[in-house]
Design a binder for these strands. Sequence first.
RNA 1: GCCGGAGUGGCGGAAUGGUAGACGCGCUGGACUCAAAAUCCAGUGGUGGCAACACCAUGAGAGUUCGAGUCUCUCCUCCGGCACCA
Length: 813
Amino acid sequence: MQEYDHKKIERAWQEKWKKNNLYRTTEDPSKPKAYVLDMFPYPSGEGLHVGHPKGYIATDIYSRFKKMTGHNVLHPMGWDAFGLPAENYALKNKVHPRIAVEKNIARFKEQLLKLGFNYDWEREINTTDPAYYKWTQWIFLQLFKKGLAYESDEPINWCPSCKTGLALEDLEGGRCERCGSEVEQKPIRQWVLKIREYADRLLEDLEGLEWPEHIKELQRNWIGKSEGAEIEFGIAGRDEKIKVFTTRPDTLFGATYMVLAPEHKLVTKLLNEKGQESGVKNQEEVKKYIHGTAHKTEIERMAEGKEKTGVELKGLTAINPATGEEIQIWVADYVLARYGTGAIMAVPAHDERDWEFAEKYGMEKRHVIRPASEKPSIKKPQPGAYEGDGILVNSGRFDGLSSEEAKDKITDFVGGEKRVDYKLRDWVFSRQRYWGEPIPVIHCKKCGAVPVPEEDLPVLLPDVKRYEPTGTGESPLANISEWVNVKCPKCGGEGKRETNTMPQWAGSSWYYLRYIDPANDEALVDKKKEKYWSPVDLYEGGVEHATRHLIYARFWHKFLYDIGAVNYKEPFMRLKGVGLIYGEDGRKMSKRWGNVVNPDDVVATYGADTLRVYEMFMGPFEESGTWSTESIIGSRRFLEKVWRLRKKVNDAPRAASDQKHTMALNRTVKKVTEDIEHFHFNTAVSALMIFANGLESAPDVSRRDFETLLLLLAPFAPHIAEELWRSLGYEHSIHEAPWPRYDEALLHEGVVTVVIQVNGRVRDQFEAAASASDTDLENAALERPAIQKWVHGKDIVRVVVVPHALVNIVLRG
RNA sequence: GCCGGAGUGGCGGAAUGGUAGACGCGCUGGACUCAAAAUCCAGUGGUGGCAACACCAUGAGAGUUCGAGUCUCUCCUCCGGCACCA
């Protein structure tokens, strides 16, 4: 037997697996299916670092395990290659994005291949392939036809550095998620998708998903459903009414002023009227205030601890519909135009923000809710706002009702309407950039926005020399007149192509369907195949996608379900979030910090199998951890130990009396099986190490024990397991061998170790027959000299016996 | 501020309410070697003791329990997300 030469073994098996098409997948109705999916990577210019493959290793283990347990496994890989990073990389390095992407994909693929993954590369997909984005465009057309895509000129978040509009999901703390620039509000024409129409279903259907609770919670918070009411306030001396949205109609009697967002339509209108007509006495002051807020960035407006500012519309009052009182109207930027109605009723006594504002500008704070626990007689002045529910006071005929009862009754009383609102915004779907899917629409002066006929898809992204963003609110495509100017498909008149492109998240919102049927040119996906493979049984990826990709993809999927294109309501049934691997210095791996570890180097030095075992052994899969080059050696030593065990394999059957050994074997099989199913890879590796250590210290190793060890190891370290397996004379791959079973009856030996406690403290232990009764155990424990020492001369109050495990003797005092 | 998650040896981390620290890294000593590497064996939470052993110990404090790292409450710290969403 040679030394363990990982280079030789890994290269040889990777070639043979490829040659034999070991990982090719076809539909097979005779087997249960398992669709195991990684979030496909963005092929950046920097290549992979050791953090990237962590999730891929886990799905590789899981899918190999599933295959060995008799499942038909779909485990594909592809490239999410449209979007800003590729384009920015291309601009910086002065290469065409298409070329840059090709190069980066080749590099990524080379790195992945070295790790021995079992992807079916015949199903490889690429979102920038016209045959692929034809269907991305097709989905947009369906959305358009169903009225779920519309054009808007509302101000949106604009990144001045990337020179494009962005969706709310593309921001990180008011900055562009890609480049970190502060975003501005800019009104430009854009396409928007009505994801809000799906808000309720996106929320409700989370319940049936086997996802980590914290990721579900992130989505719930992002969708941000709140139930409340719309209530109209009249304006003294004018015809207009101001509609407010509130979740607390029960506090209406405490509304002592109201506030409009600076962008509110009524405010704009009042400022356009002549001073006397509008009734606003301080028009100039208000204009100045609005001018001031308009130039603030989101970051400035939301700066932590920032004091609220505002200006009163002097001379104008609103009428509280509950009390009939005239109240002041203010304009303040703590009210957001985009949420609710852009106007609020301010209840300082029961809302902290209103309290703070009222405190500053001297408005009345009228208490209308008292905590239910508080006695009515006690009227202490509350410091700050009381925001909880309670019992109504100072609310006329509603006094004494609970908040809950009063909400509906007061809403009815003032003729308000119950309404639901969401924080979720409609999806801003236009990017003023080159490297994306063209939006398949033609603008015609006569017919308006006309969808490109489906038979004309795909609308190819033209190959151009200049693709720099213009910054004008138009995409660079607008400059290519021969591409832009086309005939209107409807009337045949002059038309212009839509020049905005789709956002980065478009292609990834349906890619999991493409793997099922990667070459289909007739339909999005063959419905029979889709029925067989969907939904994704296990989806694995970074938690950072919780409120981006994972929401968008669920939205599109539900839409595709509605139009009958797919069979299931949800795309991803089970989700696992991978924890990051930080650099050795504890920081995120990045060129900037010089702490990047390249998997190629680790593979060269220690081997792919060692890297795989190490990354799984580092810690709990879903938790983040720090890379430690020093610690890898442990995983390498373990594999070398397994390698050496081969020499000790003895064909003679193990002595039947070796009960301990049988037990260890069965327990290991059980532990590893359950741990893989639950993604507890660190403890699975630990169990394998313990078992290998046991075999090592035995005088010889039975063939059965060693084979079992190899089978359990195969998903983790596929190359070495295959090599040793073949050395035992097998001609078929270990990766197609059946997974070992365990026998429940053999998990326990006839003898158990029983711990003896005195007053809950461990004092002794002894071996007892597993069949011993509680009384037997109690008596045996009391006879032990070490226990006599503690118990002698004391009163025994009681004795607790846990069968097979423990005796606790409780003494008085 | 709100919502999640986590605090255990020098380090990564194990522990269905039942022997805290499995497994691994590192470290110490030993075997092998001319020597080293590799490998193997032993040890490795703290304090006291030659030892048997005892006491202390899972962020802090209380509680439930025969028994708490695990359950309950209060607090502290760290990480992640959201953040004037009415």
